[in-house]
Amino acid sequence: MLEVDQLTTRYGAITALHGVTINVNAGEVVALVGPNGAGKTTLLNTVAGLLRPADGTVRFNGADITGAEPADLVRAGLALVPEHRRIFKDLTVEENLRLGGSTLRLHQRVSRVHEMADLFPVLRAKWSTSAGFLSGGEAQQLAVARALMCDPKLLLLDEPTLGLAPTLVDVVFDLLDRLRKEGRTLLVVEQNATRALQLADRGYILRTGHLVAEGSGADLAADQGLFESFIGGADGA
């Protein structure tokens, strides 16, 4: 479904991604883990069209989408829940959802907003509240709900549990599990590497902009050397 081939992305003088190749098949959950500064967020942002790659290609359902506008990608069925959630704090919960469905026709949008309210009862309770007043867990649910508005085939999630209390981490993982059971394809960047890999069908480990390991999620999670490959070994790698 998603094929990323030899992707290189730079910020000015910094090369954040060095020719990374990954793929995600339809119906799969793929985890992307690694320490800070590994290039995970850069990878997702490049795929979603927020950043332009310096080199390499991205294909989605067979079509070349390298450097495409996010607006076109959303219409093609690819949505990103960005790092730090980035919900619109000045807008109400309902307005956030409406904006999430900006590519839909009016009647579709209205009915989809109501579906989201059913799916996420927490949000319904805060319907007309400014999103800035939501708690961390509520905000994360809103961010996911907002991305689901356009009914994406592939959902990219960047650090969905960042800054959440442990009980809320469970809520988010339950949500991911639910999405997976619905048959959505997910590419998840997660700091909670162990749990993410346990949930995922497959995983990739990224470090300093390079791919350092890939395999089935369970294998990677069980690997005793995971921590070392993750964080840069004592012998410096």
Binding site: F173, N192, T194, R195, Q198, L199, F227, F230, I231, A234
Partner: peptide, 16 residues
């Protein structure tokens, strides 16, 4: 610090 299991857990996250 390296040998401390709590550190690895903090980085990799707890088990489910």
């Amino acid at each position: 610090v390296r040998a401390n299991p709590a550190v690895a857990a903090a980085y990799l996250g707890s088990q489910a």
